[in-house]
């Protein structure tokens, strides 16, 4: 038996821009796992990634993602991934538009665009790699940085973070889910459902930045981070009175000394217009 080494590329190699790899992300960063889950989800839909899908990313570590995959894509200016995506969708409604960006880009400078996208219900999928920090610029607090955590701009106390699931539900998104990057088993299926939703589908993808946020806030290594995500995740129980959707029941809890302590996960809303 002789192995033909030219055939040993990654199982998804034809969906990746091989010449750009290895990517620039730090060792153990969740972004690579998330990107792979996205590509697996896109493959599951059976659509032609190159012809029928467009991936739009903003600024930040996540912004680089559009350059690593064979989707048509665009790396927009800071915070403007959703406006650009709205333009693409309006110009060519046959395209499936996927916005893949971070919490800083989508909810700080781009926060206004998110709520209006959810209100307008243009058909797009918004995946937020939510690692609670501005990684690329050195670790400043983002809109989802936890109350008691250390960043380069918050020594020990920070304002209350956004609960992105609550925000998306309130703004009227049509599909709202939260998982962590460690749910790579189920995520492609959820991403497929999000892409197939007519309207705004939002996934709050809890992720880790071990290099900058984790080392100061209780998950110093990537393998600890993955275990932490799985241990802290609690699948939501759907209640008839809708109480599982209350803000206090969807909030992510965090402890500076040991990482995440509670992550409510699941699909919170699944509705068709």
């Amino acid at each position: 038996m002789e192995i033909d080494f030219s055939k040993l590329g990654h199982n998804l190699e034809d969906k990746l821009t091989s010449k750009m790899l290895p990517h620039i992300w730090c060792s153990g960063c969740s972004l690579g796992t998330n990107l792979q889950s996205l590509v697996r989800g896109a493959v599951m839909t059976g659509m032609d990634m190159d012809k029928e899908m467009v991936m739009i990313s903003g600024i930040g570590c996540t912004g680089r993602a559009s350059g690593y995959v064979e989707f048509d894509g665009f790396h927009t200016t800071h915070g403007r991934a959703i406006p650009f995506a709205s333009g693409v969708k309006t110009g060519n409604p046959n395209l499936e538009v996927i916005v893949f960006s971070g919490d800083g880009d989508l909810f700080s400078i781009g926060g206004n665009h998110f709520i209006h996208a959810a209100r307008r219900k243009l058909d797009m999928t918004i995946i937020c790699t939510n690692n609670s920090v501005y990684g690329l610029t050195g670790g400043q607090a983002s809109p989802t940085t936890f109350e008691y955590s250390t960043t380069t701009t918050t020594i020990d106390h920070n304002l209350r973070p956004f609960n992105l699931v609550d925000l998306a539900l309130g703004a009227g998104a049509d599909f709202v889910a939260r998982y962590t990057s460690a749910h790579f088993k189920i995520l492609p299926r959820i991403i497929k459902q999000a892409i197939e939703t007519d309207g705004v589908a939002f996934i709050d993808l809890i992720s880790g930045c071990p290099a900058i946020y984790g080392k100061r806030n209780g998950y110093p290594t990537a393998d600890y981070m993955v275990k932490n995500f799985l241990e802290a995740s609690v699948e939501i129980e759907v209640k008839e009175d809708g109480s599982h959707l209350l803000s206090e029941n969807t909030r992510v809890e965090f402890d500076r000394t040991k990482g995440y302590t509670k992550i409510p996960i699941g699909v919170f809303r699944r509705q068709h217009r």
Partner: peptide, 22 residues
């Protein structure tokens, strides 16, 4: 295949033997 889905750097893969032999 768990490890290859988890790997952030597209390092790992699993192939069928008959598809990768000379």
């Amino acid at each position: 295949k768990q490890c290859l889905y988890a790997c952030p750097d597209f390092v790992l893969s699993v192939h069928k033997l008959e598809e990768v032999t000379v």
